[in-house]
Amino acid sequence: MKNWITAHGAALSSALRRLVRRPFASLFEIFVLGLALALPAGLYVTVESVRGFANQHPSDPEVSVFLSLGVTSQDVAIVRERLEALADVQQAVFIPRQEAAKSLRQSPGLAEVLDALPENPLPDAFVLRLGTQDPSRIDALRGEVGGWPKVALVQADSGWTRKVNAGVRIAQTVALLLGLMFGVAALAITFNTIRLQMLDRRGEIELSRLIGATDGYIRRPYLYLGGLQGLLGGVVAVAIILAGTRALDKALSDFSVAYGTQVKISAVPWEYAAGFLGVSALLGGMAAWLASSRHLWARPLR
């Protein structure tokens, strides 16, 4: 056991020496690897943030039913009863006109406008949460409710959140595909580095095999080298993502305020960052295993 640990320690220190022996080439390779890993991961973080924002706003179809001005509480009760009797309506929330005015006053600049008016211009309304997303049924419901007495206007306004969600789903798929592509690219970068290193040391490898080295012994330092490269590439990628999100967060925040909302790029949780580093190291190790196996299988000793 002690010898086994010593062998792994020696393989790790050999891998570190190989990294340090060619500092510029190693740094360049790690940086390229970091870039390849940062692009899909960064896109994924951005998409997740936009998704989080979209989730704050209901994407289920929401229909507003505005009543005529001057309706009585009895009229409201009749409309509520009819609405709740509809099969597609899950919930009907009544918003009195005073409540609506109070809410509107909180929007910048609108309080003065409301104060300038002789009376509250807003009607009583119901906000309906529907149990269907089928546009034709929503249209049918809108038409039916719009024809009822004491109902002034019916408005379905969930379209934009649905569009955002659809966009997020597309972006997630793109991020996944890019992740796969760049993952393969990262694999190829490490594979090539290890392949060249093994070619450079083929004399030593051949000699070691002649005097009794197992494939595992030969492979071990290269596996550590690949894993280390992957890990350091992951660290560079996390650094790029953190710097990128910090820069983007400010710009996006200014942009979203202009639209009366708040979009924030979510901070990368440390568990995600650790998982990402683990996956990068694993990718590097896999590439090294492939490269070393190819080298050893292509040169059988007998």
Partner: peptide, 22 residues
Amino acid sequence: RLLFDRNVFDNVALPLRIALFS
């Protein structure tokens, strides 16, 4: 078949390291 980037000690020690001597 000597390793010219290793010194005399490391060249001779190679079979021992391969055989996991302490």
